[in-house]
Computed example of a mutant assay.
Amino acid sequence: MTEHSTRAIRFAAAYALLRMAADVGDHWIQSHHQALTKGQHDENEGQSSRAGRIACTAHVATYTATQAAVLLTGSRVLGLRLKPSRVIAALALSAGTHWWADRRIHLKALAEAIGKEEYYALGGPLGGNYALDQSFHHAVETAAALIAASK
């Protein structure tokens, strides 16, 4: 097997592990309180920006711990031999951007800046804002998997 095919296998496995862990962290591990509170800002009719930051930070901590546990366990079981420094860099990228997006105000501003405000505003709990949030996370997880799989 060539170094290129080995790297491609490491990338595919790292992406699958990160993606699965992200879904578990976002939908099973995240508490109801975190989900409801993480996007709160002072301009939201008296809702506390501090409470939103705390809830988002707590969510991202458990989300990142879930990704770390799955990625490290999967790497060991599959014999991927991912470099710890690359795994840390991948998880840092995932955590930082996840916090940024889950505060909601930033992702909404991005959607507005690129003309997606109507799509973002589509109603329901699984509306446009959720779809844009998830696609943003998928894109970042792809980049994180590339980092984790690199030399």
Score class of each variant (00 low, 15 high):
T2F: 08
T2W: 03
T2V: 06
T2C: 09
H4R: 10
R7T: 14
A8S: 06
I9A: 01
A14E: 00
A14M: 02
A14W: 00
Y15H: 01
A16G: 11
L17K: 01
L18A: 04
M20N: 02
M20S: 08
D23K: 07
D23Y: 13
V24N: 02
V24H: 02
G25P: 00
D26G: 14
W28E: 12
I29E: 01
Q30G: 06
Q30N: 04
H32T: 05
H33N: 11
H33R: 15
Q34S: 14
Q34G: 10
A35C: 08
A35Q: 12
T37Y: 13
K38M: 15
K38I: 09
Q40G: 02
H41L: 13
N44P: 01
Q47N: 13
Q47W: 14
Q47V: 04
Q47M: 14
S48L: 05
R50E: 15
I54F: 04
A55R: 05
T57C: 08
A58S: 12
A58W: 11
A58H: 04
H59L: 12
H59A: 13
T62C: 08
T62L: 12
Y63G: 01
T64K: 08
A65L: 15
A65Y: 08
T66Y: 07
Q67W: 10
L71T: 07
L72Q: 07
G74E: 08
S75Y: 04
V77Q: 05
L78E: 06
L78P: 01
G79V: 05
L80C: 02
L80M: 08
L80K: 09
L80Y: 10
L80A: 06
P84K: 03
P84T: 07
R86P: 00
R86T: 03
A89I: 03
A89T: 11
A89E: 04
A90L: 03
A92P: 01
L93S: 09
L93C: 07
S94G: 12
S94E: 03
A95V: 08
G96C: 11
H98N: 11
H98S: 15
H98I: 12
D102Y: 10
D102C: 15
D102N: 14
L107G: 02
K108Q: 15
K108I: 06
A109G: 13
A109L: 09
A113W: 10
I114P: 00
K116A: 15
K116H: 11
E117I: 09
Y119N: 04
Y120I: 09
Y120S: 07
A121D: 15
G123W: 06
G124W: 12
P125V: 02
P125F: 13
L126T: 11
G127S: 14
Y130K: 14
Y130M: 07
Y130D: 07
Y130P: 06
A131F: 11
L132G: 05
L132K: 05
S135M: 15
H137M: 10
H137S: 12
H137N: 09
H137R: 11
E141C: 02
T142E: 01
A143R: 04
A143Y: 00
A143I: 05
A144Q: 05
I147R: 01
I147D: 03
I147Y: 00
A148N: 05
A148E: 03
A149V: 11
S150M: 04
K151H: 07
